[in-house]
Structures are given as C-alpha cells and as structure tokens.
Design a protein around this nucleic acid. Sequence first.
DNA 1: GCTATATTCTAATAATCGTTAGAATATACG
DNA 2: CGTATATTCTAACGATTATTAGAATATAGC
Lengths: 220, 220
Amino acid sequence: MDKRKTKDLLYEEVARIGKAVSSPKRLELLEILAQGEKTVDALAVEASIDIKLASAHLKVLKAARLVVAERDGRFIAYRLSGEDVSALWVNLRTVAEEHLVELKVAMDGIFSAPEKLDAETRRSLMSKARRGDVVVIDVRPTAEYENGHLPFARSMPLDEIRQRLKELPADKDIVAYCRGPFCMMSAEAVALLQEHGFRAQKIADGTAEWQAAGLPLTTS
Amino acid sequence: MDKRKTKDLLYEEVARIGKAVSSPKRLELLEILAQGEKTVDALAVEASIDIKLASAHLKVLKAARLVVAERDGRFIAYRLSGEDVSALWVNLRTVAEEHLVELKVAMDGIFSAPEKLDAETRRSLMSKARRGDVVVIDVRPTAEYENGHLPFARSMPLDEIRQRLKELPADKDIVAYCRGPFCMMSAEAVALLQEHGFRAQKIADGTAEWQAAGLPLTTS
DNA sequence: GCTATATTCTAATAATCGTTAGAATATACG
DNA sequence: CGTATATTCTAACGATTATTAGAATATAGC
C-alpha cells in the first residue's frame, strides 16, 4: 500500500517500452517489421547489421512485447505484436519530425519535395485513384505489398519497374509510395520514371502512416 | 549520398525521442507536465525526487525538445512543447497496458474496477453530464483544472472534498477523474465520497487521454 | 544419425546513463 | 550591494547497454 512504490512500478513498466524504442537500430527493425513478418536474417540484411546483433535487438523488442517470434521451418519469423506498435513508431517519428530541427534539416536535404499528407490530401488521393485519374504504385517488395497495401494501389517493386514501364500510362499522374517517409525506394522510383518521361511524384505515407491515420488497408 | 549513413542519421534522431522516454522518472515528469506548466521544484516534489535529479532529467527532455523552459521570476517553469508530446505519453502507456502482462497485473491489483473508456462511453458520459444526469468532478489541484479540464467538469480538489461535501448531490452519480490511469487521486476521492454515502465512481481518463481521443478540453 | 544452416547464448569490452553531492550561477528582495 | 532562494553545472560512482566474436542449440534434408 506504499503509494510511491506502486507508482514507481507502473512508470518502470512503461519505461520498458521506452527503452525498447530508444535505440536507432531497434526503431529501424520496427519500421521494417511494420511492413510484415520477416526472418532474423532478412531483418539483419535490411538494417545492415550483423545477424547476432539483430538477434540481440529482437530479443529486447520481444522482452518488451513489441514483437513476437514464431518458428517457420528452419527460420524464425518476427512480426509486430499489434497494430498499436506500428502506430507507436509513427507517433514517435512524427514527434521527432515536429520538434527536432536537426531531423527537419536532414530530411529537407534528402527529400526535396514537401510530400507530407494531411487528412484532406489522403481523401482526395483515394478518390482520384478510385476514378483512375492517378495511378498509385507500391514500390516495395511483393511480399510486403501482399501483406497489406493502400486500397487502390498496384504492386510495382522498385527492381521490376525498368522492365515493366509499358504497364504504366504516359498521360496520367503516377504516385509512388514505399515504407514511409524514411524510405528511399519511392524517390528512386520517381527519378527512374521521370527519366523515362512519366509524370511521377511520391508521397511520404507508407502503410503504417495510412493505417495510423485511421484509413483501411487491403490485403491480397 | 551514402544511403546507409543517411538512414542511420534519421533513425538516430528519432531515437533521441525514444531515449528521452526510456526513463521511468522522465515519463512521470511528462505526465505531470501534461497537467500544465510547473516549476522544477514542484516537479521534483510531485515525482518524489531530488531537485538536482529533476533538473538533470528535465535537461534531457529539453534536449529532446519534448519540453520547453521559461523563466518566471525566481522560478523556471517547464511545459510540454506540444499536444503531440502528451499524446505520445498516452500512446506509450497504452501500448504498455496492452502488451505488458506485468503492468496489467499490477493495475488490476491496485485499481479494482475496469474503468477504461472507449469512444462510445466517452460520448455517453459527455451527454449525461450535459443533461446533468451525472456530476463530473476534477479532483486535481485547482491550477491544473484551470489549465484545461473536461468540458462539463467542476473543480473539486482532493484535499477540499471533505469540506465541500454539501456541494455534491446525494441522489446523482458522481464521476471523478484526475491525471490519468496511473493517478490515485480519483480513487481516493471515490473512497471518501462512498464513505459519506454518495454514489461515486471513477474513470481512467485524464485530460491527456481525453485530448488524445480527439475530444476538446475547456480552459477557465 | 550426420551435415548444413539459422538463430541464440555467453563472455568481454567500451561507452553511456542514473544518481548523488558540492560548487557555481542567476534572479529577487531588502 | 549583499543575502536568500531556485536552478544548473561539474565531478564521480556504479550499473546498464551496444557491439563483437566464439560457442552452443535447434531444425531440415540427406
């Protein structure tokens, strides 16, 4: 019945979540996992770290219950333990983008265009895509697309675009998205498309941002 | 133009926010600050830590731009740097409540009733309060009430309740709230009111939770 | 059962962090 | 101008964490 001790215990529990998201590599792993289930190996490659280190970080995330592991044959696959975890990642990143001047500067330097979306822009994009006025392409790997994508998007992985250019309309706006504002795949896709004369632009949203905004995803 | 280095930099910036929220004491300070501006001294007392330690933690929060300091006469007052910071605290705590069994168990032990609110319950509470079917009391200190409170709530600080019992209706439901699910003031208020024969209950919401649910607050 | 592969565990190091105490700074008030 | 008060800075410690390398474990396929 010691009030102070009780409180300390409660905040300590929440701090377990905070500690889990206090490492850049773990945040990167969370963002990758927000695209769907992945093996330790795939995560390590994607985050450019050693498998052993990836395993250690995943252990921390698992201890904080932000991810769950499941053995799948010879591999062990990790996934986020819930949609709220991906929303937490979006929330953290948004607060950082909002308040950390350093991050704003860094992002301005890398991503030239201001492509942040608000509720109205999302709505209008959705209806334009439904009418066929724009073509929305998901440039992530196929598996991630299949795990969940924007409702009207078609899959066009970055490394297939060059071979599949004829599938795209030359007279319509093409909107590319990938894993979110930190992901560079959509920017590369846009550069490639513009080189070939397409009217292409990118948006900052990935599926996590879309979902965090309360909008639905589609699974194939 | 090194893609890896750029990414590392971005995640590192977000991790600054993560590091700031990785300490139990800093989380507690954030929750207190979500109730409004406070001096270092007041924060230290409220969080039961030494002023020097409070100052050190506040420095970390300030470096992460989660709080801003302003000198006010002899005192230095800190406040959250935005509503999104208080929403981040709510989000972190919610993820913890959702996934950490230990926290669930701890809270079940302390707070007997299941008083978590969903959107529907919040709406119905608001309309009942507007009609006067229930009396909603804010049992936090007056300054916090004045900084922002639920739209229909009246101020009744915990340490004034005993003297002000006659202001409360004996034939209506009384709903008490305080700083949020970790705050014990509303539970104490309810116990006190029930002892005196009132029909009282508490809710888990504080102003931060209310606001994070997209509902408006009132300032006096 | 044996081998190859994927993953985790153990151990060790360097770096970082929380906490405490004492000195220093800055403002208000007489 | 000097004193009191509030806050921060500095220094120090013990504890925790990230990272790396090597050993150990667990599964799949032969």
